[in-house]
Simulated assay, not measured.
Amino acid sequence: MTTPAQPSSPGPRLVHIVDEVPELAGVQALPMIVSLEGFLDAGNAGAHACSHLVGQGAFSEGGGAVVATFDVDQLHDYRARRPPMTFARDHYEEYDAPRLVVRLLRDTGGSPYLLLHGSEPDIRWEAFCRGVLEVVERFGVALVVSMGSVPMAVPHTRPIAITHHANNPGLLTGSSPWRGELRIPSSAQALLELRLGEWGHDAQGFVAHVPHYLAQLDYPRASVALLEEVELAARLTIDLTELREQAEEREEEINRYLASNEEVRDVVVALEQQYDTFARAEEEGSSLLAEDEPLPTGEEIGRQFEQFLAGLEGPEESGGGQ
């Protein structure tokens, strides 16, 4: 077992925190939502959810007051994830620098909350966690709630499953679909939850299971599912009307494509059969493995949906950035 990092200074100003935030004076039980772009963001579910929150809950023009900023230069691997910029005929302009900030927002009922969003750190995860600890303790954050999404071999025609997790069992609001232990790749977001628990701060999170043939698209249905869980956990009220409309439009696009492409439809039907067999076995307490229902491989679905992705992700398609 590794020894937890001590909550000491994060180093040479890794995080810059606003000295005074009058809007938070006297606020009790302040929640902070966390969603980092990168590893845990299949279907851009977290990024799209953050964009929606910023648009819905901003204090003022510009997307909400920034109350803390991380020095991304100390955290970002520019050669691994090169930020986009514009070359206009004979010169460079519009460099989209990666950002990692904490915004102060309000829900539809006027309750304040914090949103930590931006690029997942590539390096110095322990220092990043200590930086977040500074934010938590400076503003008296009572609960940290994270959002994430992963690609899974599930059909889009079935309910979106959510993995619930927390560093305090009393925070869990749903049962886990997993049995036993899993060895998985770590993330800065996962490490943050672990470290906060070791330092005596509550943190929980939700991971949406996104159909892996849609993982490269904006998939707002997963964003809706995540924010519904966040509402309950953080005791917030979020207007999801616009996001639900976007989700319905995307579902209609998918269904129109499937109706005209029998080969791709067969792949989805196979996933549905696998999913339903799994669900029946779970209810009956029998084997969770579907017999005689081979699951299509990622390569197979990737080939089948190559045209699908090209058709839906046209030049006018907007991303989930904020």
Rank of each mutant, 00 (worst) to 15 (best):
Q246T: 07
L217E: 12
A203D: 03
L243C: 06
L194E: 11
R235K: 13
V230N: 10
N168E: 06
D202G: 03
A233W: 07
V207K: 07
E228T: 08
I162M: 06
A190M: 12
E181T: 15
A203L: 05
A166H: 00
G205W: 13
L227E: 05
L182E: 08
W178H: 13
Q246E: 15
H165G: 05
H212S: 14
L217S: 14
R250P: 00
L191W: 01
E245N: 11
T237W: 10
A166G: 00
I162H: 00
A225K: 12
L172R: 09
L192C: 01
E229W: 09
G174T: 04
L194P: 00
H209P: 01
G170W: 09
E251K: 08
H165C: 02
S176A: 05
H165V: 04
S175I: 09
L192F: 01
P220K: 07
R235D: 14
G205N: 08
V207F: 15
A215I: 14
E181Q: 11
A234Q: 07
S187T: 15
H209K: 04
H165T: 07
H209Q: 15
A190D: 03
R195F: 04
I184N: 00
A190Q: 03
P185C: 05
A208F: 14
E249A: 13
V224F: 08
G200D: 05
L240M: 05
D239Y: 08
E193R: 10
V210T: 10
T241V: 14
W178T: 07
P211D: 12
Q204A: 11
V224Q: 09
H209R: 07
Y213H: 14
T173C: 04
L240W: 06
V210K: 10
